[in-house]
Design a protein around this nucleic acid. Structure first.
Lengths: 336, 336
DNA sequence: TTGAAAGCGCTAACAA
DNA sequence: TTGTTAGCGCTTTCAA
């Protein structure tokens, strides 16, 4: 059916290995032969059988990414933007991208094992790191190439890119304090997620540094969706001693919180300040536009992908640990 | 390094072919041997080398999906939900999912050619169909298995799932008319996209059936992002003879349109009605909540994936063409 | 019920 | 500069 090296060899009257060498642009083939082979290959519509290449070369030229999905209505603009970055960068380097979806949980490592032991991919991308991350422990133990978006609290070394959630949250909380807010609520995220921990720490630290009392009941837990942001803000705003500002751990929850405030007749940015984190495209086009911390999501996707490819190729990384500083984007929702 | 069939064969004192047959649960191996082989395989941590399997079996057990991404800030909640459906369904059937990103355009078919000719995948998923869709023409011509989300205007047959955009848009426009609206604007999407054409046709048809004049200047083109929804609605609302209702071709643009109205001090659902299409999770948590047409996005992902796997396996499809009826979800943004 | 042998399409060491 | 040979790990006749 499909054209193979053998067919080309026959057509040009050379051996299979010569054809292979010519196509791989090896030194020890005459320029003439190379050109002839390449021309004929193109004419015949040759495409290498990648299964055969993989078997022989013992590499797949494929990257793996296991997306942590939470239930069927998983719909996070953050991830689609990250995917765009990862997809483009891997394509640029001739790598395929194998994506698999899996809810976080105990049988999650099954998915990782499958990727690693089946030699389906040459390396893995890990996102949403957790303080004690079994996926990372597994990969490190196996000596399998991977790059993480996020740090952990395990005490071994691995390559990662992360944003500085502490200083990011510091910027936005300080911004609120400078605007005169004293009672600031925080919509937190599951504490096993590292970035949630950092952002919460940033909140606590900034409050403390400014000598502001920390009312623990003003820290409410969400799950990163607009739904829980909506709920959490509703509860906060229905209290008699309601906060004057609400900082959410991410944009999606902040957007939900804005809706909750508006349903109660409050003017966001005036009666109550609301802030997010991530700067997804929607943040700019909500009403009022959302004050948040900008993360170069697309660029992060490209970075972790690029680092992983370098690891796989055995090249050394210029920076094994990258910590990005999020920048504060002040819009109307904070009243600033 | 890794455990192979040969290692197991050695360990149990049988031949490689017997071990292979045992592991594949063939008839002609004794029960004893099967159990022995399986136990030892598990103990040794055997995982088949899929490159070798693929080379031999001449199939990849992999599905491909080329995501149409538009620029770096590609961030569409619709796609992440679709991905969740596709990912889960393919995993359930033992298929891997190869994802690649590519902007729509002339060199897009390169990406399709790569997937097909390199035999990287057994079948492809095509989304965002266009009226004259070269990707579909190519795949059909190659006789390569694929399932589309959306129809085309080409006159050959292929399996697809689609939503009935005409009747969907009909529902929501009729809803607006029933509320008393006469000057209804429409934020359209690029007309080469089939779904955009259907939705626009639904708008035109409903207006006409109700004997309402169609002011062509009230039809503005967007690109499906909240950004252009924002812009388009801004222009519409700044006109002296501004519309009393704006129907957007999708939710993201509707969300942008709502922000534009609110920036102008208008109360959405009262001073101006705004509607969307898709019912992404954000639609429910915007303020006011968005009147829109519900599509079972996750389920659509599972359906097209399931259909594709059936095609690959040579099973016949119970329904080769599925047309889903979107349901109207009336929320506050339409004032209904 | 089992095993020997062939070969999927490719690469790479080595010989010519 | 080119060709011969071997073999990656697996499946699948076919013969024993």
């Amino acid at each position: 059916m499909a054209v193979t090296l053998k067919d080309i060899a026959q057509a040009v009257g050379k051996s299979v290995s010569t054809v292979s060498s010519a196509l791989n642009d090896y030194e020890d083939v005459s320029q003439e032969t190379k050109e002839l082979v390449r021309r004929v290959a193109r004419e015949m519509g040759y495409m290498p059988n990648i299964a055969a290449q993989r078997l022989r070369r013992k590499r797949t030229d494929t990257l793996g990414w296991i997306l942590p999905t939470f239930g069927p209505r998983f719909s996070d603009p953050f991830f689609s933007e990250l995917l765009a970055g990862i997809g483009n960068e891997s394509a640029l380097n001739g790598f395929d991208l194998l994506v698999s979806t899996h809810a976080p949980g105990p049988d999650e490592d099954e998915a990782y094992r499958r990727m690693v032991s089946g030699r389906r991919v040459d390396g893995l991308l890990v996102v949403r790191t957790r303080s004690n991350d079994l996926r990372i422990a597994f990969l490190a133990e196996q000596g399998f190439p991977f790059v993480a978006f996020g740090r952990t609290q395990q005490d071994f070394d691995f390559p990662y890119v992360d944003e500085d959630g502490v200083s990011g949250m510091n910027l936005v909380i300080q911004h609120l304090i400078d605007l005169g807010h004293r009672r600031i609520a925080f919509i937190a995220a599951p504490p096993d997620l590292m970035f949630a921990t950092y952002r919460l720490a940033g909140f606590r630290g900034t409050m403390e540094r400014n000598g502001l009392p920390l009312d623990e009941s003003l820290i409410v837990l969400g799950d990163l969706t607009q739904h829980t942001g909506h709920q959490a803000a509703g509860e906060l705003l229905d209290r008699p001693d309601r906060p004057t500002a609400i900082a959410a751990c991410n944009d999606l929850m902040a957007l939900g919180a804005m809706a909750a405030a508006q349903e109660r007749g409050l003017i966001v940015g005036q009666d109550v300040a609301i802030t997010g984190f991530d700067d997804i495209p929607l943040a700019q086009h909500s009403h009022p536009a959302l004050t948040t911390l900008h993360q170069p999501i697309y660029r992060i996707g490209r970075m972790i992908c690029d680092m992983l490819i370098k690891c796989i190729r055995g090249e050394s990384l210029p920076e094994r640990h990258v910590l990005l500083q999020p920048s504060l984007v002040v819009r109307r929702s904070s009243g600033g």
